[in-house]
Design a protein around this nucleic acid. Sequence first.
DNA 1: CTGGGGACGGGGCCC
DNA 2: AGGGCCCCGTCCCCA
Length: 252
Amino acid sequence: MPRSFLVKKHFNSAKKPNYSELDSPTVFISPYLYKSFSVPAIPQPEVLSSVAYNPITVWTTSSLPLSPLPSDLSPVSGYPSSGSASPVSDGDERLHAKLSETEPHAAEAEKFQCALCNKSYSTYSGLLKHKQLHCDAQARKSFSCKYCEKEYVSLGALKMHIRTHTLPCVCKICGKAFSRPWLLQGHIRTHTGEKPFSCPHCSRAFADRSNLRAHLQTHSDVKKYQCKNCSKTFSRMSLLHKHEESGCCVAH
DNA sequence: CTGGGGACGGGGCCC
DNA sequence: AGGGCCCCGTCCCCA
């Protein structure tokens, strides 16, 4: 289940909360976040610099079946290089890697399932965290959000969640508010035009790392998301979903 | 209609 | 424990 399905959505005009109605104190982002204003030139962050990529990667069907991104897209965790037909997050790979090191029984079990909600996790620690944040909360004292119906077993988790309501990080330029400082940082780039994440294959640059990742898919003949029926591939899951819903695949 | 970009949210992990 | 960062995923908009 996509994580974002758990998230409260704002549609159309309602997508943008009326920040003036928020009753919690607003904390303007600290000035250091604006340091980049004086640097219009596009820096190359270490994590996505051209150095981090293979100089030119020709993504062909034979060389990169379904995960045609450079394996070293992110020097932190690496990009999924699995040939699996279904997208596998590098987070999963990290978990699996950790699994093999610390969870000897996980290899056989494959998954750790919550007895209460049946949600599965690839690591025991993941399951534990899930139970702490969600299911065990049902049986223990929980911290309830005053803005919605969500409950958390830890105050920290609740505080983090409440930020999505209070949006304490406010853009000094346009007044738009965000739940987390780094979201504001990304937003500020829309004002400054800063696009630190450059595509190694074309001249495009992006303000958002995730958008660069999606863009990289467009350079691939075989993209990450494949239709099970006609084998056509798509750069984004949403496009695959549209494709499937369009009735292309009769069998579907 | 399709594909791509912009923007943003939450979970997971690390420090 | 809490904050920061990364990643995945989604929605909206536009060409």
